[in-house]
Design a protein around this nucleic acid. Structure first.
Lengths: 339, 339
DNA sequence: CTGAAAGCGCTTACAG
DNA sequence: CTGAAAGCGCTTACAG
């Protein structure tokens, strides 16, 4: 019923080996033959059966995006999908397809990865940071399966990963504040155990120190990552004899609390207190005033991960462990150079 | 190198046909044989090669989720991913995988669908409303390819689709308002040409009328879908001699403008003006006050679409055109029964 | 530069 | 209840 390589071979008057070689861009076929085969393909509207190709080649041209998918992930963590879109973009350009696999409903840790590896349904694995754990790490390392992890794993290993440099983003925040003329800057972050928050804080403090400004402990506020807690921590800070001139908020949710605290004390942004935060978030656009943001282009992180995967497939020995995407400053109304 | 069906057959002392039958749950195999085969599979850690299975069966156990993916879709339209998660959940339960395909970078309309259909890389197509058009419709109908479209297509056809009943959601809004005792209720919607907004408005007005309350034209505000425009339309409405007692906002963005307009006139919510909107949105949680919402569980819509696809695969003749997921009221602080 | 032939690892009529 | 054999539609050494 559907057109096969044999039909094309007959139509073109060549063997199916030759058709196959044309399809796979072998350089040993004469231009005239290539021409004939293409004409036959056009005429018959032939498309190779991808199941047969996969089977014969022993490869799928498919990559799995492994992640932890809960019912409301789309709202709580849109970044995960933005990354996925970036990955998809690059793979698609390279004629790879992307299959979504969810680790959240596994019967045992590593179940899905085992399946992917042993069933041969995919040539490589891109693993979102939310899904990685030791079981999975061991499975892919033992099998030598091509993989890229998005986000630096929390444990040492020979895993391949790409990540954004959160400490660098913290430095960008410091540089921006100093450039505006703010030298007395506070930092409101998450719990001290939060990796990203700690990195950003570290980078921020180092960036300030490099430029000659030491941030004392009193200017650092750690929260339970709720808006409410950010509000109270900020309120406390603002009642100190000398309040800070500017505040760096580690994320948009904290920023909401910080802004409210500033407004409730009748202080104006940025004239009394300047504010900066990290990451464009779903509700960034409706925060009043529009915040200055140190943004990480996570779509680009996905694009990078996709490229790395393509490189791995060509050169499986490659050990990739790198910080890729650079932060970028999105200027809002919440910071302004001092006169 | 890797374990094949022959290895299992040897280990179990049966033919590979028999192993295959055990794998495919044929009922004609004796319990003793099944036992032996399972033991061999366990011992050898055998997993069937999915490429070979696909090829031999002529089917992939894979479904494509076709959608329009732009760089910032994850932020602008998280619903699309929530639906996708629902689809994935159901398919995964039924041992189907989900492949993501993007229509936004096609060289011509229908390119991706043609590829999917003719290459046989997938057994069915779930199409997000953002990706459907006449070209695609014709391709899948001509090929008789199993498909489910999420969202009622804007043109008549024999396509299979599932959708949520937006008019019904409008009725829910009316019923809730009446139940609270609000009878003079305004509706702020998008442009008149917006399908979802028009459906919600229609259902709302019908719901009010059914309960004996006619909504006059002066109580309907159409906007260009911006927060700002919602603000001005609402402000105008509130300066009328008799302002409405409650307002139904067709979406969260409009609600932001409406709330601001109400607050700027020193009116309190819900004591002076009650407010209700549709859909849980990324920033719903930070709107002050928390709004009462008529929500459509779009994850469930995805789940339904997945189930329908499974049914279609079993019975390709099935014509599915149905409204599935029911709306649900999420009570917030912006409406309250009158004393 | 081209083709005949083996083979990829399963499934499934068919025969027994 | 079980197995031998053909076949799914390609790719790829190999020979010429």
């Amino acid at each position: 019923m559907s057109v096969t390589i044999n039909d094309v071979a007959n139509e073109a008057g060549v063997s199916k080996s030759t058709v196959s070689k044309v399809l796979n861009h072998w350089t040993t076929i004469s231009p005239a033959t290539v021409e004939k085969v293409h004409a036959a393909i056009e005429k018959l509207h032939y498309t190779p059966n991808s199941r047969a190709v996969s089977f014969a080649k022993g490869a799928t041209s498919n990559i799995v995006y492994l992640t932890n998918l809960e019912k409301d992930t789309a709202y709580r963590n849109p970044h995960m999908f933005d990354i996925m879109c970036g990955v998809h973009h690059t793979l698609s350009e390279n004629n790879y397809s992307l299959m979504l696999v969810n680790t959240s409903e596994e019967r045992y840790p590593g179940e899905k990865v085992s399946e992917v590896i042993t069933s041969g349904s995919s040539d490589g694995l891109i693993i979102h940071g939310s899904a990685i754990n030791k079981e999975i790490a061991n499975l892919i390392l033992d099998a030598g399966f091509p993989h890229i992890i998005i986000g630096h794993p929390s444990f040492e290993s020979r895993l391949c990963w790409v990540d954004t440099n959160h400490a660098l983003a913290g430095e960008y925040a410091a540089a921006h504040m100093i450039a505006c003329g703010y030298t007395d800057v506070a930092f409101i972050g998450e719990r001290k155990t939060d990796y990203i928050s700690a990195q950003r804080q570290k980078g921020f403090m180092a960036g300030m120190l490099d430029r000659g400004f030491h941030i004392p402990a009193a200017r650092i506020g750690n929260t339970d990552s709720s808006c409410q807690h950010a509000y109270s921590v900020t309120s406390d800070m603002l009642t100190q004899p000398v309040p800070p001139r500017a505040i760096v908020c580690e994320n948009n949710t904290l920023a909401l609390g910080v802004i409210q605290a500033v407004k409730d004390r009748q202080l104006s942004i940025p004239d009394d207190i300047a504010i900066l935060t990290f990451d464009v978030y779903p509700y960034s656009s409706i925060i009043d005033p529009q915040l200055t943001i140190v943004d990480i282009n996570v779509y680009d992180t996905g694009v990078q991960a996709g490229s790395m995967m393509i490189r791995k497939l060509q050169n499986p020995e490659l050990l990739i462990q790198s910080y890729t995407t650079l932060p970028v400053i999105i200027q809002g109304e919440s910071t302004r150079p001092l006169p």
